[in-house]
Design a protein around this nucleic acid. Sequence first.
DNA 1: CCCATCGTGCAATAAAGTTGCATAGACCAA
DNA 2: TTGGTCTATGCAACTTTATTGCACGATGGG
Lengths: 142, 142
Amino acid sequence: MCLQCDYESLLRASRLDVTDNRRRVLEVIGNNSYPLSAADIFQTLQRSAAINRVTVYRILDLLVAHGLVERISTGGRAAYFGLAPNEHHRPHPHFYCKRCGQMECLNPESLTLDSDAFGKTFPGRIDKVEVRLDGICKNCMR
Amino acid sequence: MCLQCDYESLLRASRLDVTDNRRRVLEVIGNNSYPLSAADIFQTLQRSAAINRVTVYRILDLLVAHGLVERISTGGRAAYFGLAPNEHHRPHPHFYCKRCGQMECLNPESLTLDSDAFGKTFPGRIDKVEVRLDGICKNCMR
DNA sequence: CCCATCGTGCAATAAAGTTGCATAGACCAA
DNA sequence: TTGGTCTATGCAACTTTATTGCACGATGGG
Ligand SMILES: [Mn+2]
Ligand SMILES: [Mn+2]
Ligand SMILES: [Zn+2]
Ligand SMILES: [Zn+2]
C-alpha cells in the first residue's frame, strides 16, 4: 500500500494518458500490501466495474514498460505485479509461499546485497535485481 | 559443467532407479555450463536418441523433487534447470538476458547475502533463495 | 466534417506445462 | 514357467497463462 502515491500523477509523470482503466489497475496494485497476479488484479477490478482480461494484460505491460509497476517472478507459472521501486519504495526481496501462492514483501534491510559494486565489473547491462525466497508461509505451516 | 559429479551415483544416492532417460537428462543438465529450459534439454536429448517431451518434464520434476536439479525462474515464461547446489556447487546468482534468453551462472562470491540470519527471524519455512539479475548480456549489447 | 490515433473488447492463437490412459518391461511370489 | 504387480515411458488431450489480430467507438486537430 502506498499512501504517498497519487496514481494519476504517476501516470502523467510517465507521459501516459490517464484513463479509468489505467488508473484502476494502478490503484489495485498500489493499494495492496503485497504483489498480485494478473488474475487477482482482473478479479478485483471486475468487482467494481467491467473490464476485459486482455485490457488488464495490456495495461500491465504498459505500466511495467514505463517503470511504474514491477513484474515479479514466482516459483510458479504466473507473474505477480507490485509497485515498482521509487522514492517511496525501496527495492526489496519477496517471499513466495508455494502452498497458498501468497507473496510477501520483505523489509529492504532484511536482506541486502551490493549489486552496484557487482554491476561495475559485469560486462553487460543489468536492469533489475530480483531476490526471492521460496517456502511455506506462517499460515500454511500449521 | 560438473566434472566431479557421477550422475548415476547421484541418482542412486537419491534412491532413484537409474534409467537411460534419467541419466541422460541429468547429464545434459550437468554437462552444461549454464541452466537450460525444458525445451533446450528436450532438443538436445532428441539429437542423440528419441525421447518424449512429457518424459522430460516428468524427469525434471522428479529430479527437482529429489534435490538433484534446481528449477530457476527467469524474467520470461519458461523455467530453466541447472544442477542443484551440492558439495561441488555452491548456491549462486544467475544473470538472465532478456534479449537472447541465455542464462549465466554468476560467481558465488559476486553477490552475497546473509539469508541464514534472516531465516532465524522469519516466521515461515524458507526452502530456497533465488537471486536473479535481468538485463542484456555482453553479446547482445553491441 | 475528415482523418488519424488511441484505448478497449472479443475471438483466436500461442507457449509452457500437466493429466489420463495404454503398454511394455522388470521384478517377485507361487 | 506362470501370473500378478509395479514402474517408466509414450501419446493425445487438456489446462493455464499470456499474446495477437482485428474491429469499433471516442477523441481531437486540421
Ligand atoms: Mn514488494
Ligand atoms: Mn548456475
Ligand atoms: Zn502460504
Ligand atoms: Zn543475450
